[in-house]
Each structure stands twice: as structure tokens, then as C-alpha cells.
Design a protein around this nucleic acid. Sequence first.
DNA 1: TGCGATCGAATCGCGCGCAATATAGTCGCG
DNA 2: CGCGACTATATTGCGCGCGATTCGATCGCA
Lengths: 150, 150
Amino acid sequence: MQDDGSTAEDQTLDQMVCFAIYSAGHAMNRVYKPLLDALGLTYPQYLVMLVLWERDDLTVGQLGERLFLESSTLTPLLKRLEAAGLLRRVRDSLDERQVRLLLTDAGRRRRGDAAAIPACVIKATGRSLVELRRLQAELESLRRSLHEAA
Amino acid sequence: MQDDGSTAEDQTLDQMVCFAIYSAGHAMNRVYKPLLDALGLTYPQYLVMLVLWERDDLTVGQLGERLFLESSTLTPLLKRLEAAGLLRRVRDSLDERQVRLLLTDAGRRRRGDAAAIPACVIKATGRSLVELRRLQAELESLRRSLHEAA
DNA sequence: TGCGATCGAATCGCGCGCAATATAGTCGCG
DNA sequence: CGCGACTATATTGCGCGCGATTCGATCGCA
């Protein structure tokens, strides 16, 4: 059966890699949570704000491409950020199908409050910047392969 | 030491690593979904079945320790697996606080139906077993560091 | 024996995350 | 202009995932 030299352990390796990603993601979330609670943001909301802090006036679709998320995920999340006063959702007057995301002053100000987070999380990983950079590149490459396969 | 990048990039490295884990997890899920749909399982349900196929008669708490999940996540999930006829949830007669998880014959049989999944997923990663094993070890080590930090 | 502390699981409320679907707006073409 | 195809976002239904809380069972200890 296993003419490629793999063993019974190899048979479940995908499960272990996937579970490793899955559980590392949860562990990350648990580190971020107390830091983000202080900002009144969830982790996905924080990701949205990171994108918009870099450049706002994006459409929902453009944001979804950056984050690999669907409008069914983003629309309610963005409404909550709007309700929190961090951004405005404005129909594009040239193409009323699109919704443009504009940071409010309050939304822009929150960037400063979030400035301390990266260092905290890097510290919690217990890893060097070089190691983190390599891990990141590896995971991004893996994500691209999985996208192609799907 | 080489000059390997600007400070500004370092400031956001944690975000990029975390996002890489986060989005790779979603990409994994999208690969698993069609495979698991055929079995009538979700990914978390599949993880539970993997643990129980290895050894059942665990308590909810023991299962949670293996998967790093809380009873508030597992209880409803386990009820769905019970409703699907894959396992039984039985109060331990010696300690009625605990619930023991026992696979049904149908639950045990489903193991065979799932046998093809690992190879499919490994193929989708486009990576060698050696690479996957290393990535797995790295992520598990990261998870341990994050647990300690939290 | 009694009774408070603790424990394991269950429940509740909320926010994702997505597939399927709906709705509204735009475009292409006769 | 009118109509069908297409596009962007929104809605719905379901299953996580967790913190906070509850509930019944068990333990500790006088």
C-alpha cells in the first residue's frame, strides 16, 4: 500500500498539520483577546481596521479580497464597526451597488491605542523576528497552494 | 547581524504572522469542506471523531484537553454527533458529574469512509511530508509558547 | 452528619464564517 | 428605450468558539 515509504504516522500527518494551524489560531486569539478588549475590538474587526488604517475608502469587495472573507461575514462586522463610530459605510454615488468604507476621526484615533499590541504579541510568541518572518512566508505559501487546489 | 528590514515592517510582523495563521486556517477549511460534506461532518466534528477513533470512552473534559476546546463548544457539538447516531453520551455511574463518550457501531464504521481524506489534503498542500512535519512541529511549539504567555 | 467549596458539564449571549439566496443597481445589445 | 445578464452587497440559516453563569454531584472537613 505505502510504496512511497510513508508510515501509518504519515497517514494522519495532514490532520496533525491542520490541527496545529487550527489550535495555534485559537491560541493566538487568546493572546489578542485581552489586548483587543481594551480597544473594544474583536480580532477580525482589528484586521479590518489594520487594512483601513493603511488606506480607507475601500469597497466591501476590496476589503474581502485583502482578508479572504465574504460579504456575508463582512457586512454584519462592518455594521458593528459603524455602530461603534469607527467608520462610515457610504454607497458610491457613481455605482450605487458598491459601499465605500470611510474611517471616522474616532476610527483613525484608535490606531494610536492599538500601537502597543504588535510588540506584546511578538513577545508572547517567544520567537525572533527572523523566525516569525520565515513562518509567515511559509504559511502564506501554503495558503496559496490550498487556494489553487480548491 | 545583517540589516534585514525596516523597523516599520517589524512593527506589524505579528499581525502578518497571525493573519497568515488565521487565513491559512480558513484555506484549510475550504479544502476539507467538500471532503467532509460527503461524510456529513464539519471539521471540528471530524477532529472529535479522530480522537475517539483512536480511543473512546473519554470524558468531555478529557476530549477538551486534547483539542484545546471548552465544554461550551463541545457540548452542543457532541449532541449533534449523538443525534447523527455516531456516539452516545453517557453519565458516568461512579461520578455523575462526568459524561463519557462512547462510539456507536455507525461511528466506528465512519472511520473507513474517512480514510481517503488525509492523502487528499496532503496533496492539496503541495508540500512534502518532511516539510509538513517540520511546519507542524513549529506551530505546536508556537502554540505552547502562546499558552504559556496567556 | 451537615454544609460550604469545588468540580464537570450544560446553558446563554454574542460574534464570526460561509453557502445559498435575495435584492438592488449596472451594463450590453438590439 | 427595454430586457436579460451580470455585479456588489445584504440576508438567512447553521455551526462553531468562548466568557460568564448555572446546576447538579462530589469532596473536605469539622
